[in-house]
Computed example of a mutant assay.
Amino acid sequence: MTPFASTLLAWFDHHGRHDLPWQHPRDAYRVWLSEIMLQQTQVVTVIPYFQRFVSQLPTLPDLAAADEDTVLALWSGLGYYRRARFLHRAAQVCVEKHGGELPRDFDALAALPGIGRSTAGAVLAQAYGLRFPILDGNVKRVLTRYHGIAGHPSERDVEKQLWLHAAAHTPGERTADYTQAIMDLGATVCVRTRPLCAMCPMRSDCVAHRDNLTAQLPTPKPGKAIPTRNTTMLILRDTDGRVLLQRRGAQGVWSGLWSLPEADGTDGAWREAQRHARIDDAQALTPFMHVFSHYRLQIQPLLFDGATPAHAIADNADLRWCTLAELPSLGLPAPVRSLLTALPEPTAL
Rank of each mutant, 00 (worst) to 15 (best):
M1T: 15
T2D: 15
P3D: 14
F4H: 11
W11L: 01
D13T: 09
R30E: 10
V31L: 03
W32L: 05
S34C: 00
E35S: 10
E35M: 04
Q39S: 04
Q40R: 11
Q51D: 14
L57Y: 03
P58L: 10
T59R: 13
L60V: 14
P61N: 08
A64M: 01
A66M: 04
D69N: 09
T70S: 10
V71C: 09
L72D: 09
W75H: 06
R89W: 01
R89H: 08
Q92K: 04
C94K: 07
C94S: 03
K97Y: 07
E101K: 07
E101S: 07
L102G: 07
D107H: 06
L112V: 02
L112A: 00
A122W: 00
A125Q: 04
Y128M: 02
Y128I: 00
G129M: 10
L130K: 12
L130E: 15
R131P: 06
P133D: 15
P133S: 08
L135T: 03
G137I: 08
N138V: 11
K140D: 04
R141L: 03
T144K: 01
G148H: 07
A150G: 04
S154T: 13
R156W: 02
D157Y: 02
E159T: 09
K160P: 00
L162R: 09
L162S: 12
A166V: 12
H169L: 13
P171G: 13
Y178E: 03
I182L: 03
D184L: 09
V189L: 03
C190T: 15
R194F: 00
P195V: 15
L196M: 14
C200D: 15
P201M: 08
S204T: 08
D205T: 04
D205M: 11
V207Q: 07
V207C: 04
A208K: 06
R210K: 12
L213S: 09
T214L: 01
A215H: 08
T219P: 04
P222K: 02
G223H: 01
P227C: 08
P227S: 10
R229H: 15
N230S: 05
M233W: 13
M233L: 15
D238T: 04
T239A: 06
D240Q: 15
G241Y: 05
V243N: 01
V243I: 15
G249V: 02
Q251L: 14
V253I: 15
L257C: 13
P261T: 11
E262K: 05
D264E: 12
D267G: 09
E272R: 13
E272C: 10
A273P: 09
R278G: 00
R278Q: 12
Q283G: 03
L285S: 13
T286W: 02
H290M: 04
H290C: 01
H290R: 08
S293A: 08
Y295T: 06
Q298R: 10
I299R: 10
P301T: 14
P301S: 15
D305I: 04
T308A: 04
A310W: 11
A317R: 14
L319D: 13
L324G: 05
A325M: 06
L327C: 06
S329V: 07
S329L: 02
L330F: 05
G331T: 12
G331M: 11
L332R: 06
P333N: 05
L340F: 07
T341D: 14
L343P: 08
P346C: 13
T347H: 02
L349N: 11
